[in-house]
Design a protein around this nucleic acid. Structure first.
Lengths: 339, 339
DNA sequence: AAATTAAATGAAAGCGCTTACTTTTAGTTT
DNA sequence: AAACTAAAAGTAAGCGCTTTCATTTAATTT
């Protein structure tokens, strides 16, 4: 493997000079620069990033932790983040935490061990205190999908409460009052917040909350299917189902359809997130748009600004700048049943 | 930041001993081990992976290059790979090449600069020669979706030719003879291979290839839509469309439906890949299953074996072991038109 | 108890780079 | 042309760890 030493020897200069050329210092004559560059070229030299990091004390990398690497939600989130970071010529490190608390801790530990200059965290299990502790340990962080008191300027998320309030209201506007709800796991922050939104909307409309219309899901297709089964088997009466997210909604629609119940003619269904397949399924899903790709973009831009003072990291035309307002996307899965 | 030095001082041992404890050497008394571990604990010590790599000459990391980080195809591929690698306690580094040749080179350069111990490459633009050169430079690689002469044992892919041959044959079996084809970009290896499969099947069935039934796509939804437009506007006669992949198929179905043409009653459509949404759309897509998650799993296992001699990296029950046979998944988008 | 041997620990030399500090070189000024 | 100054290049000390080799310690043998 070629090292800086060999380059310096070929070019007939010192190590320091080669290093300067690499780092674009202006303390070097053009003539010397050329010599060094030519030497690097002919040797096929490639700096060892480990050594660079060790020596300079910065790793030029941003770490990201998310639950899963794939899927219609995490995929775009990660992809957006990566795009901006690579564009800024920094390294991008992702780890999947797979959702449980211990793994999340390990994942963050790993990222810290890599001496990332900054962290983008999508934490589902860590407590506010733990997050504050990490932040206080000196590393810059950006939190996705959390709102932690004391770290307000590091949080980046849409308003889940508002989102599901909007969707519940939409259902109500369309004449629904018996609205079932297939929730996400209640130990997840966003699931809880989405439940609150539902409650708020109900309260505002003076519709009493019927606990028997609530079933817990898992944010997945299977949860949607199971939820419908429970609801139907218990012979509950309802005209609409508010789902914790789009996957759940899809599962619900599937199960309803299988049982010969038509969506939205017999029962309306509304989702949350607006992931890729939402507009592909039949009926096209009415849902709340969560601009997840943009969140990835912005989170990266934020951390780049904080850590490296890089401004304008986001390409023009893609910037949303902080306005992650949940937005209703009305498609085909909700029927107006007002007489 | 706590370093090994501080730990050694607190524990009252030498640096070397601390290092030994970290690396699980059996050359240390249990008593000393305990002392050191306690010291690490109280200091909250976390080894610097950069320093470890630099000193040991191995980075304990596997790099992966793919075109995109998200999407129904790359998502599972990456996720599968990550799972196995993290399980083996190695680091996982992904970079997106975004498909063009220059970026692919840069991406690989980056990975090499990180001194990855091994590379998983999904290269679309690099020539066989370039790949061979990389391999010869000494780093272990596994190639996904390529078959390179001279690197046979490093290639991991399904048989695209066979896959589209099977799907074309399925169409023929169902009575179709006028089969249009919306291809993928022909500079991509897999797109070319899928085209060959189509040709083979036609030849075998003694159906002449009608070049006016061929339209080039982009492996995306838009390509499917455009393809159908072209085909229809040119007033071609056909009863089925073979699509380069599922995204294309979805676009095609969308456009057909928009124009009042029913799938599969009027025209049959077949896809390739069997990505997540294929079974979610309506009609459910008949397609060729590409076990992409498994490919990710196996690719990682392969590289772990090569680089670290780790066997059995794949959890039981998930192992497919090399049999990436394309498989027809018959759903609803193909109609039997045999009178 | 002395001698022998094996196990445990320590000392120190790097890994490939950056960077503060020093020296050399070349350009200005008088 | 001597003296001064600023720019360019070089020297060397780390960054935090691993690892070889030397040393100490403890266990075993005679």
């Amino acid at each position: 493997m070629t090292t800086i030493k060999e380059v310096s020897e070929l070019a007939g200069v010192s190590l320091a000079t080669v290093s300067r050329v690499m780092n674009g210092s202006d303390q070097v004559t053009q003539r010397t620069k050329d010599k060094v560059k030519k030497a690097m070229e002919t040797l096929g030299y490639r700096p060892n990033t480990m050594a660079q990091s060790l020596a300079s004390g910065k790793s030029n990398s941003i770490g990201m932790m998310i639950s899963e690497l794939h899927g219609p939600f995490y995929g775009p989130l990660m992809s957006g983040a990566e795009k901006v970071i690579r564009q800024a010529n920094k390294q991008f490190l992702v780890v999947a935490s797979h959702g449980d608390e211990n793994s999340e801790k390990k994942a963050i530990d790993y990222l810290l061990g890599c001496k990332c200059d900054g962290l983008i965290l999508h934490s589902e299990t860590l407590s506010d205190e733990e997050l504050i502790k990490i932040s206080e340990s000196g590393i810059e962080i950006v939190l996705i999908n959390r709102y932690v008191k004391g770290l307000e300027d590091k949080c980046m998320s849409i308003d889940n409460v508002k989102g599901s309030k909007i969707s519940t209201e939409w259902l109500i506007e369309n004449g629904h009052t018996k609205i079932a709800c297939i929730l996400g796991p209640q130990w997840k922050h966003d699931a809880r917040e989405r439940f609150w939104g539902y409650q708020h909307a109900l309260t505002d409309a003076r519709i009493p909350l019927d606990p028997t219309l609530l079933v817990s899901g898992d944010f997945q297709e299977s949860g949607g299917r199971e939820g419908v089964k429970q609801l139907l088997d218990a012979k509950k009466e309802f005209t609409a189902i508010l789902c914790g997210n789009d996957e759940t909604a899809f599962g619900a629609i599937e199960e309803l359809t299988n049982r010969g119940i038509k969506v939205p003619e017999d029962i309306s269904v509304i989702g949350f997130d607006d992931v890729q397949f939402s507009r592909m399924i039949s009926p096209k899903l009415t849902t709340i748009r969560y601009p997840i790709y943009d969140v990835g973009l912005e989170a990266s831009a934020e951390i780049l600004a904080k850590v490296y003072q890089i401004k304008n990291a986001i390409p023009d035309g893609e910037k949303v700048h902080g306005i992650f307002e949940p937005q209703l996307i009305s498609r085909e899965s909700v029927k107006n049943i007002k007489s």
